[in-house]
Design a protein around this nucleic acid. Sequence first.
DNA 1: TATTGTTATACTCTATAACTATA
DNA 2: TATAGTTATAGAGTATAACAATA
Lengths: 150, 150
Amino acid sequence: MNAAPGNTPRPDLAAMVVPLGRALMAAERPVLDAHGLTMWAYAVLSHLDETPLRTQAALAEAIHADKTRIIAVLDDLESRELLTRRPDPEDRRVRLLSLTPEGRRLRDTVRTAVREGEERLLEQVPAADREAFLRTLGFLYEVSQGHPGR
Amino acid sequence: MNAAPGNTPRPDLAAMVVPLGRALMAAERPVLDAHGLTMWAYAVLSHLDETPLRTQAALAEAIHADKTRIIAVLDDLESRELLTRRPDPEDRRVRLLSLTPEGRRLRDTVRTAVREGEERLLEQVPAADREAFLRTLGFLYEVSQGHPGR
DNA sequence: TATTGTTATACTCTATAACTATA
DNA sequence: TATAGTTATAGAGTATAACAATA
């Protein structure tokens, strides 16, 4: 149970991170379901608000999804008037995406609820550890996704 | 970028943890492939070594898998003589599982390689943060899996 | 010819239900 | 009848390839 290299001081990283991720997603699900959103729909709403994107492919890449996979998501969100999708006049192959006011409102509602659940979990962690954890998690996330801010 | 509640101090936890988990699994894959192991096969080898289990159902639960899903895995590992699976004489419905010496050896080899990869990643994190991160990750993992040691 | 968005298809992973053999 | 293990089936999620529109 020590930290000597080559020993067994802990379960494999992936063996903890992957199940934790599954559990976090499962905890979010009721919130998302209550608003008729899939995880990917929520990811789209979240990301669109922060960084307006010009193409669907860029959006897909930003949320680490396949470009073919978000199409049904966009269809749904558009039909519910949570976002608009119009051809770019300057290049009519491109679809300009933007959140509607209702889309932004929904996003805020859901995000707040999601964050509340996460805070309840993190509350159980000592404050000092919490900060280091979030900082390191953010760092490892960036590095693992191709460290854009290397 | 502060910690005021309700603000946007960070991406959602799940939005970082899930992709990080995917990346960690992807990083492990070459190691596992090199030894002809799936992720579940590795999980089985890892867990069997630590805690000898009397039933397949208990093993499945321990690694958070479906009991029907590990059967093909056990078939494969047994045919490769990495583990043995014999009926319990006292209750012939039950299969007693145990790692063979080769199974244990393979598990050690793979685990060492996996850990090396993880260490290379963790090396980039300041030592103080690293410890807090691993401690907190372990804690959150336990809690999220039904906090057996609550 | 190359690119954006779209559709269709196939493949993997996972969950559910039905079956057998023991008890 | 209940339980351990097994098999078969169906469903969700994902990736690949082919297609239409525009450049």
